[in-house]
């Protein structure tokens, strides 16, 4: 039997980080408008070193449009994948993810309610939708888990997914109702629901980064407890894990992260579900290795998907969800089948 060290070794960190970084650079260099690599490097270098630049179109395209967007996409990908990985471990459920459990739809409902009723915090234009999205994500997760526990204390895969999907449908019906009664703001909401990473700013990226550092950090610190959960809740209790407390902490962090991502980028399906599985094939199931790898894998995956969305039909742009679902489902099924065969 091959024994892996529990956490990442240094060179593995370097390897994963390099892949992510290379993808990041690739996504900055390629875009809807063709800018020579030399020019790209020059602009970015001058921006970093604070030198003045000649006015050319490449400057705003790179610095105000492409770079913040790629950063936001990468951070959203990392956050959603981390959430998926953490939930799959916590619930011992390979199908757990923000979208299958209805947490993303819950967060979306929160944001829609905030837009429809004009809930804003004056100084921070996006804080209203974000807070509501986070709150609704947490409430959704609590409701779904509470319902599932009452039906089936072992939280079997099918029970929780069934409840999650039912909940998603319930939430989307409420969302439609809100939209029907919201009148002239309808346009606002319907467009918002599609989710958009267009117009991402450095401020968005900063919010995402802080959320990831804070909540993601807490989740990562509970990797070992998640390992225990992945074997079984009783097992976790037996080896001295404070089951209730850890579960609550992880759920709060997951909802907060999903809430932030949804309020900035809309609901992006599939990524939280697929990435942890793909990464698990590479690094194994230990959460101390899996979670950091999942974050980097998710960032890479979503950045590449966004790249395809941006350049495939130039000058048109595809919705990113189309690309993630298309590539994601094919990859997922092929991984699923090949892993089954090995067994």
């Amino acid at each position: 039997m091959k024994i892996r060290p529990e956490s990442f070794r240094f060179h593995e960190y370097v390897l994963f980080a390099t892949v992510t970084l290379v993808t990041l650079i690739l996504c900055i260099c390629i875009g809807s408008v063709n800018i020579p690599v030399k020019e790209t490097i020059r602009v970015i270098w001058r921006a970093i070193s604070g030198l003045s630049m000649a006015e050319s179109k490449a400057v705003p395209i790179l610095l105000s449009v492409r770079l913040p967007r790629v950063l936001c996409v990468g951070l959203v990908g990392a956050s959603l994948s981390l959430c998926g990985g953490a939930m799959q471990g916590l619930l011992k459920n390979p199908l757990a993810d923000g979208s299958t459990l209805g947490v993303s739809s819950g967060a979306a409902l929160g944001a829609v309610v905030a837009i429809a009723f004009g809930l804003t915090i004056p100084a921070f234009p996006f804080a209203g939708t974000m807070t509501m999205a986070m709150l609704f994500a947490f409430v959704s997760l609590t409701v779904i888990l509470a319902l599932a526990y009452r039906l089936d204390a072992s939280l079997a895969t099918h029970t929780i997914i069934l409840i999650g999907i039912t909940y998603s449908m319930f939430v989307s019906s409420i969302m439609t109702l809100v939209i029907t009664f919201a009148g002239e703001k309808v346009k606002h909401i319907t467009f918002w629901m599609m989710g958009s990473l267009q117009g991402s700013s450095y401020a968005n990226a900063l919010v995402l980064l802080s959320a990831l550092l804070l909540f993601g950090g807490v989740i990562l610190r509970h990797s070992r407890e998640l390992n225990a959960f992945a074997i079984g809740e009783d097992n976790a209790r037996a080896i001295g894990v404070n089951v209730k407390r850890v579960r609550l902490i992880v759920l709060i962090c997951v909802s907060a992260l999903i809430g932030v991502c949804v309020s900035i980028g809309g609901t992006i399906g599939f990524i939280g579900l697929v990435t942890p599985h793909m990464v698990r094939m590479i690094v194994g199931p230990n959460h101390r290795r899996l979670l950091p790898a999942t974050m980097m894998g998710g960032a890479t995956f979503l950045m590449l998907a966004d790249l395809v969305a941006r350049v495939l039909l130039n000058p048109l742009e595809l919705p990113i969800g189309v690309v993630t679902s298309f590539i994601g489902s094919i990859m997922f099924i092929s991984i699923f089948y090949s892993s089954r065969k090995v067994k």
């Binding site: 395209i61 449009v65 002239e184 703001k185 117009g199 130039n314 919705p319």
Partner: peptide
């Protein structure tokens, strides 16, 4: 009608912009 990239608008540098966005 089509959804277009922000980069292309900057690149194509229009002399005039006409928006039909609603104001609430």
């Amino acid at each position: 009608w089509g959804k277009i990239t922000e980069e292309q608008v900057i690149e194509r540098d229009p002399d005039y912009i006409v928006t039909i966005a609603m104001y609430f």
